[in-house]
Design a protein around this nucleic acid. Sequence first.
DNA 1: TGGTTGACTGACCGTTCGTTCAGCGCGATG
DNA 2: CATCGCGCTGAACGAACGGTCAGTCAACCA
Lengths: 211, 211
Amino acid sequence: MAKSKEEIVQEFRVQSIQEAAIRVISRKGMAAATMQEIAEEAGVAKGTIYLYFRDREELVEKTFETAIGQLHGRLDAALDAEGPFAEKLRSLLTAQFAFFGENREFFRLYHSLRMTQGSATQQRRQKRTCQPQFKARVDRLAGMLKAAMDAGEVRVLDPSRLALFLIEGSIAIVLERLTEDAPPPESEDVELIVSTLLGGIAIPKPKRSSH
Amino acid sequence: MAKSKEEIVQEFRVQSIQEAAIRVISRKGMAAATMQEIAEEAGVAKGTIYLYFRDREELVEKTFETAIGQLHGRLDAALDAEGPFAEKLRSLLTAQFAFFGENREFFRLYHSLRMTQGSATQQRRQKRTCQPQFKARVDRLAGMLKAAMDAGEVRVLDPSRLALFLIEGSIAIVLERLTEDAPPPESEDVELIVSTLLGGIAIPKPKRSSH
DNA sequence: TGGTTGACTGACCGTTCGTTCAGCGCGATG
DNA sequence: CATCGCGCTGAACGAACGGTCAGTCAACCA
């Protein structure tokens, strides 16, 4: 059955409100994004939002789920790349850098959703809805690391810890890039991470003089 | 000249208000911590806080400076450890793990102070006061890395990027430890980071069969 | 001991926010 | 053309916040 006219309008409203929410939260941060400004950004009245979302909490929750779904789609595609572990890692990081480079604002949303507790009144359930999303991403990477360990490509270490370390470390670099006027090429930072993670940074002490 | 009675009382008030602020912000997060609750936690009336701090912004700022000063003192002491780079790195991480292990609440303050924008009204200067503190920590570690590179102990890479990657990655692991019921021994996680950073995780492909 | 001081209090204020709802305009209907 | 249905509006409301200040009272002095 084709979508009725009402359904089309409904989907359009939901989508434009969510996109407005992403932009406003990206600009102002989670706590400072008001329903008023989101409504203005979406070109509707404040009350209209409440026709499509029960309350602010649901709006934020649904918006985040939608947005995070897009990111995961991109990262999953990158993980499907063929080749050795190093290549998978490189393509994952490249995808992440590219995605956040194209969507600076979205990245700020993604990142601000982690720590930000709401303004006293709301709060609560944000933890239960957002943290699992991050956990899923960590688990996914941990799975990839585990596979590489089983394949003998990588030393056996705690995959979860490694995944956490890698994700947060690389996010920090992405964040830093976003604040820089002229960041180095993406590939440069990607290579820094890949080579550090794979080969380490130590220069082996020469046991004997090289002569 | 000995401290007058008034000075002692004043210092006591300032200190207990700041400690209360740390506890409340740790529990509720930056944006959700209200002056009312901080006052109750400190055992004084809300108005009393304004006798010692101009406004909420100054309270948060001074509190953060005091707290971060303690942490930096500990980390600097760890960095003064003698020995090769690996040893310095290990003692730095150990100090960080120990400090945050002893002061879980403070760690949450430390971490929540980073992203959280205030509740619309305030906001603004928090960036200018908190971010430099983190930058100082990154710079300090970057300096240590640079020294190790100059000494030929470590490959030449962008020290700032590396420092960022390491700090954020290790903070993520600390955070994870705080949420675990029975985290592994500190030394285990420290060794994971040290060995990953120094030696990498890759297992070199055998060029020839080992026969 | 009566008077003075000032640290402290908490009811109160102005503001801002999320949420509501009575009413508006407009396309469809008969 | 009159009527209805309904998506939408934005003024209004209550809650909660940071900040204020007139009043309280214990400690001290003369």
